[in-house]
């Protein structure tokens, strides 16, 4: 297993291999994400029972929770890619980091807005400077900052290093988001789901959520690979394999 992982890691460092393998993976991510999100949507919207306290607005968690999961894990991935770039000087890591930023920002935006919409009927307010809400807003600005930094800096290598550094420093915000609901218990409720405990809701409610979470992760793979492939071609267009690829068509 370990050997297989290190081989995969070294191969992924090669743009050519990445381009080939991502072409094979892409349709699978697309199919899995469409199937799981489709099933989760139908189940979550039409079949899951309504929450006796919140009514039907609880159904918003089927997009809010997966988006919030992704918003945070994408940031961690971006920071890890930053470490790989700075420590091992693997340029593919920067392609990945660059491709993660827009989808991460989108997920954070979805989590923030759907949370605000849900807050209106549930909390009676769409926004409060609660610790969880504020730290998620900071996450959104971190994403925007990384994107803006790359636009602003030239040459490409300098921008890559600066973005990696910013992503790594900003990762301090992730545990703050995670524990904010326990440290400052003001508005947002503590986690509904943890990996270690059985969820406190019937299966007819949490299974569609699980489907959505899997679907969202597959969607991330799909979106990430599409962006990364375009970026690999752009960066490697002078190399022989890209020329072969373009002429074959």
């Amino acid at each position: 297993m370990w050997k297989w992982l290190t081989t995969l890691y070294h191969r992924l460092a090669s743009p050519k291999w990445f381009y080939q393998i991502s072409g094979l993976w892409l349709p699978w991510f697309a199919v899995v994400s469409l199937l799981f999100i489709g099933a989760g949507l139908i189940w979550g919207l039409a079949y899951a029972p309504m929450d006796y306290q919140q009514g039907n607005s609880f159904r918003i968690i089927y997009v809010h929770v997966p988006a919030a999961f992704l918003a945070q894990s994408i940031y961690v991935m971006m920071a890890l890619a930053g470490v790989v770039l700075l420590v091992w000087k693997i340029k593919m890591a920067d392609v990945v980091a660059q491709s993660l930023a827009p989808v991460g920002a989108s997920m954070t935006f979805i989590a923030l807005v759907t949370g605000a919409i849900w807050g209106v009927p549930t909390w009676g307010t769409w926004w409060m400077w609660d610790a969880r809400l504020t730290s998620m807003l900071i996450l959104f600005f971190l994403y925007l900052g990384v994107i803006a930094l790359r636009e602003a800096l030239k040459p490409q290598d300098t921008a890559a290093k600066a973005c990696a550094l910013m992503a790594i420093v900003g990762v301090i915000n992730i545990p703050i988001i995670k524990y904010s609901v326990d440290w400052w218990y003001t508005l947002h409720q503590p986690a509904t789901f943890t990996l270690t405990e059985k969820p406190a809701m019937p299966a007819s409610m949490w299974v569609p959520l699980l489907l959505m979470v899997i679907g969202f992760y597959a969607f991330l793979g799909w979106s990430l690979l599409l962006r990364a492939r375009a970026e690999v071609l752009r960066r490697e267009h002078k190399s022989g394999w890209v020329k072969d690829l373009l002429q074959r068509k």
């Binding site: 039907n56 918003i60 919409i117």
Partner: peptide, 11 residues
Amino acid sequence: GGQGLYVWSSF
């Protein structure tokens, strides 16, 4: 149940 606007706009 009257919460359609919230649910559908989120989705």
